[in-house]
Design a protein around this nucleic acid. Structure first.
Length: 423
DNA sequence: TCTGGGGTCCTAGGACCC
DNA sequence: TCTGGGGTCCTAGGACCC
């Protein structure tokens, strides 16, 4: 049976989440900022209509914000994550198989569904159900490959006449849409590839689809070859409904204010390590490689620039925050230089092993603290109830480096103390 | 003054092995 | 004049995604 995929994607997801609990803002322009209140990462349709661009630094559009009463929000990931879960759970109930692709989109496997119901009708039903249950508007793209489903979804968003659903299973419709889409809109074609393709005279999605896959593989890569095949309706990317285990965990932040003191940087790095280790244990994994990275700002021409990173392979895999803090401290010492104004730092954990499969040898055995697992468990359990309730001394209490979140909305659905009150 | 964070995959090149 | 060849593994860096 020929595969059929649907891509369900929430409209203006972060901005829509902010509007959910603020009916007074239903028709207001809303933007959501990146961490540290840096740049715009989401816009409501009213904000898009004002010409506010994706990714623009917020300080460059202050005037517009004032003039049009644009509502500004800091990123509230607790809220977005919770709304996302609700959307995904609803989809699970509607489709035979679901792949959660990102916080605001999912692929559905609709293979065989066409035998029972009209696909466009099905899409409209999905849309109506999500709208009713969660209050979130989604668009649905349906096609024989994921790449085409992405494109169909894009069309559903772009053209209101579609009522938010585009069924692209018909090859004639495929061709027509492909000819209208710039190649840069194709999933997997980013800025660099667009430039190279345009230089070769390949400007529309149809141009790319008409290329010989073998040639494309030779000139570019297997990835783009797959894209060409997918654009021709040949499914090369399967639905991945089993969540693969992570291969790395990152924690990095820009600072609310520039960091110049070693002690502050050490606090920040320690806090990132603690957070990453928590995620690592949540994944039931242990890691053997840790790296630390620091850098100054990128944009002020008067500030001298410096960036560096260092990594360390541990003697044995661990998920013990204390071991990782120790390693990170040594790495930071190795790359720290006085006299710079640091803007950002981060840490990466990688080289993962399943917890429990590690065989300690005669020598490392003595190093592993016997109470490690239990201690970490207790720490995690306490912090699950209230994040940051217990922490390691090196994380500090000053937090002079903490990121800006000056426009944060309440945790409407994730905090008992911040529930919406109806009067 | 102020410009995000968290991921994956592929490739090229070097080290190393026989 | 001629100075092996084939393979694997690892890492860094680039490109892409949302």
């Amino acid at each position: 049976m020929r595969p059929v995929f649907a891509l369900v994607d929430c409209n203006n997801f972060y901005a829509s989440c902010e509007k959910l609990f603020r009916p007074d803002l239903r028709h207001a322009p809303v933007v959501v900022l990146s961490n540290n209140d840096g740049c715009v990462v989401a816009r409501s349709k009213e904000a898009k209509a004002l010409g506010i661009k994706m990714g623009v630094p917020v300080h460059k559009i202050q005037e517009q914000i004032q003039q049009h009463g644009v509502q500004v929000f800091s990123s509230n990931y607790a809220l977005y994550g919770d709304i996302s879960n609700r959307v995904m759970q609803t989809l699970e109930a509607l489709a035979p198989a679901v792949e959660v692709y990102s916080i605001d989109e999912a692929f559905l496997d609709l293979t065989g569904v066409a035998n029972a119901v009209d696909l466009t009708e099905f899409g409209l039903q999905v849309r109506a159900t999500i709208q009713q249950h969660i209050g979130m508007t989604v668009c649905v793209g349906i096609a024989p490959s994921k790449t085409l489903a992405k494109l169909a979804n894009h069309a559903a968003k772009q053209y209101p006449a579609t009522r938010g659903v585009v069924d692209l299973t018909d090859p004639i419709r495929q061709k027509k849409l492909l000819s209208l889409m710039p190649v840069s809109e194709v999933w997997g074609v980013g800025r660099k590839l667009s430039e190279r393709l345009n230089a070769m005279g390949i400007t529309t999605a149809l141009d790319l689809a008409s290329q010989n896959p073998k040639d494309i593989r030779q000139k570019f890569s297997v990835v783009l070859e797959r894209t060409v095949r997918e654009l021709n309706g040949e499914s090369c990317l399967a639905l991945e409904d089993i969540i693969p285990t992570k291969q790395q965990i990152l924690c990095s932040r820009s600072f609310g204010q520039r960091v110049t003191r070693y002690a502050d940087m050490h606090e920040a790095i320690s806090s990132y390590v603690a957070r990453a280790a928590e995620k690592l244990r949540h994944e039931q994994q242990q890691c053997q490689l840790i790296s630390v990275y620091i850098r100054t700002g990128l944009f002020n021409p008067n500030d001298p620039r410096y960036s560096n990173s260092a990594s360390l392979r541990l003697d044995y895999p661990t998920d013990d925050t204390r071991v990782l803090l120790n390693a990170a401290g040594r790495l930071l010492q190795a790359i720290w230089k006085d006299g710079y104004r640091y803007a950002k730092a981060g840490i990466t954990l990688s080289d993962f092993y399943d917890r429990g499969v590690v065989q300690p040898d005669l020598f490392t055995q003595q190093v592993i603290s016997p109470n490690s697992a239990r201690l970490m468990q207790v720490v995690d359990r306490i912090n699950q109830q209230q994040r940051g309730k217990v922490f390691f001394a090196s994380q500090g209490t000053g937090k002079a480096w903490a990121m800006n979140r000056n426009h944060l909305s309440p945790g409407y659905t994730t905090s008992w103390t911040q529930l919406r009150v109806v009067q």
